[in-house]
Design a protein around this nucleic acid. Sequence first.
DNA 1: TATTACATTGTAATTGTTATAATTAGTTTA
DNA 2: TAAACTAATTATAACAATTACAATGTAATA
Lengths: 143, 143
Amino acid sequence: MNQLKEALDTLKDTGVRITPQRHAILEYLISSMSHPTADEIYKALEGKFPNMSVATVYNNLRVFREVGLVKELTYGDASSRFDFVTSHHYHVICEECGKIVDFHYPGLDEVEHLATHVTGFKVANHRMEIYGTCPDCSAKEVH
Amino acid sequence: MNQLKEALDTLKDTGVRITPQRHAILEYLISSMSHPTADEIYKALEGKFPNMSVATVYNNLRVFREVGLVKELTYGDASSRFDFVTSHHYHVICEECGKIVDFHYPGLDEVEHLATHVTGFKVANHRMEIYGTCPDCSAKEVH
DNA sequence: TATTACATTGTAATTGTTATAATTAGTTTA
DNA sequence: TAAACTAATTATAACAATTACAATGTAATA
């Protein structure tokens, strides 16, 4: 059940070199249990790697995405967030503070099927997010 | 059932001044029946308004969004697309050519309810998109 | 008309991300 | 092991979408 080990194995299997930086980025993604931005990862690791480049973070997040280890969550102009892929889940996002909470729900297969049928698209996947206000921010709003 | 007229009424009701630029942007959004980027709108109207600024387009799209006339569709680094709000619908997006097709489907209320229950969020709305390959691009892929 | 509030314009600034070139590290082959 | 090659990292410049700002214009109000 060691997620990091499994991830490293995936890299090895797909012929992606395991560098100290990659190791650290993966480790951070898994252990932080959050959905950090590239910059947050960069900042978090600059203690251990004082001369790591932001480009390295971006490059490797792209590599991880291509291999399927990581999902990129994009929101308009704000910066992307990166989610280590464990099981299939959706996200609930607080519009006040930006907090992201995982939300397990069976895949929306029916929607995909109908879309295939109606539009003639070869459907590959979908994206769903739920927006609202988290309990903390709701509490603060009482004035 | 004149959408433009209704939209203008909405602006009037909410005290938003109706300028020639705003009129033109709305008109374009409605008549084009597409999901243009800010730049596409800008380019489309530069014949009629040779010295309109891009900032004006962005400003007014924001105003329209705040009033609820327009929805902004954001995709990571690529530019946002703007959708005149008619009825509730979802989008099916071609990953090859970027084409966006409207897809009518009853709202995913159940998902929202469950999310409320599980996470304690005050759920406001959700976003769902379906990704795949459109018939045109599928046809081209046969080699 | 004078005053005020709102819109538009042009441009500069910002920000997240990517491209590029040089350097370093690792792997393969002779 | 050395040489040759490939991949990864770094630093920095470039890019593109969007926003901020200050100046100007236009409309509403008193």
